[in-house]
Design a protein around this nucleic acid. Structure first.
Length: 210
DNA sequence: CCCTGATTCGC
DNA sequence: GCGAATCAGG
């Protein structure tokens, strides 16, 4: 494999987005993370500058003109619950007051309106797994989660990043809705505790039932 | 041990 | 220019 313009472009974009070298290598295929890092250095962009905030909202982002952080490991599970708009998220201040009072919503396959804003921040992707019913989870894992949810960071939609647990808590239709936000596991969308309830080995599932 | 980026240096 | 090997660190 060689560094075609296209591949370099992808490299630049992903590096700018704060993706790790190995993630980029995986995406590109045919290269190792070493190759990616080497290229990054040769391109002179080893300093992760000129990129959008890799750090979450609480950071010292110059409030001037912050584009809404694009979430790229999407949380698509909340398929268009009408109530679940972005209100509860960080009030990043509206770019445009929307001159026309009438907002023309696009419709999805089911004829459900999709706000353009929502589509922008929640691209398609792996859906969240359904919340498992309580009796399907090991008591230990459940207890762990309950504990974790007390100490969770309770972040909003906009604060989600690659590195934050995206486990949703509460009812999206409620102001009490938030995401766990603790550090996520390597390559997983959730923190350790939530990985525990989200991904269960087949064997343990089988063992538990019956 | 998993991972991260940084550097070196033979190709 | 490329990237494997290595280093240094979390």
């Amino acid at each position: 494999m060689s560094w075609t313009d296209e591949r370099v472009e992808t490299l630049k974009r992903m590096w700018g987005e704060g993706q790790s070298a190995s993630q980029i290598a995986k995406e590109l295929g045919g290269v190792t993370r070493n190759a990616v890092i080497g290229k990054v250095h040769r391109l002179g962009l080893s300093n992760r500058a000129g990129a959008a905030s890799a750090e979450p909202a609480t950071a010292v982002v110059p409030a001037t003109e912050v584009a809404p952080a694009v979430i790229d490991k999407p949380v698509s599970a909340f398929e268009d619950k009408p109530h679940m708009r972005t209100e509860s998220a960080t009030p990043a201040r509206k770019p445009k007051p929307d001159p026309d009072a009438v907002e023309v919503e696009e419709l999805d396959e089911n004829g459900i309106p999709i706000s353009a804003a929502r589509r922008a921040i929640i691209p398609a992707g792996q859906p969240l797994p359904p919340q498992p019913s309580a009796n399907e989870i090991s008591p230990e894992a459940l207890a762990k989660v309950n504990e974790v949810e007390k100490t969770a960071k309770r972040i909003g939609l906009m604060e989600l990043t690659e590195k934050t647990c995206k486990w949703p808590v509460g009812d999206p239709a409620t102001p009490d809705f938030w995401f766990c936000g603790l550090p996520s596991q390597q390559g997983k969308p959730y923190c350790e505790a939530h990985v525990g309830v989200a991904f269960q080995p087949m064997s343990s599932r089988r063992d538990r039932r019956r």
